[in-house]
Amino acid sequence: MKSILRLSVNGKPREDAVADNALLIDYLRDTLRLTGTKQGCDGGECGACTVLVDGQPRLSCCTLAHSVAGRDIETIEGLSHTGNLSRLQRAFHEHLGSQCGFCTPGMIMAAEALLRRNPHPDLPQIKAALAGNLCRCTGYVKIIESVEAASRTEELAA
């Protein structure tokens, strides 16, 4: 059964007919074609599908689309503005925080939530914020360095 879902995705209001049993990740990837959000383990164990719901990092593979009705959803596609990468995207690029790239959108969204809450986190705080995100390439050192570098940079004006 489908019903109307109203919510905001990357700042734009949306209104779509969505199945009751649709997961947020399926709505984002299949209905909106926002394929930046990755489907990794698909069972809440790897964090590749992390998106922001009202600024909080959430696993879109363990969330029903209708459960976030009326909320603000942000995906990796919403971070860059007018062709400019966000400071986290730029830092991951410049500090080799991305290897195969599959975990990167989830890593960046989890780190984005951290930096908004705590603009200058220390190392244990970065590790704690990324504890739910797996990197199959095991590039954790560079990922953490990228987040540290981003925390020392100003966000470009939107």
Binding site: G47, L59, C62, T63, A129, A131
Partner: peptide, 9 residues
């Protein structure tokens, strides 16, 4: 419990 992305939900 689990990871930070679980605990927000």
């Amino acid at each position: 419990v689990a990871g930070p992305t679980h605990r927000t939900a």
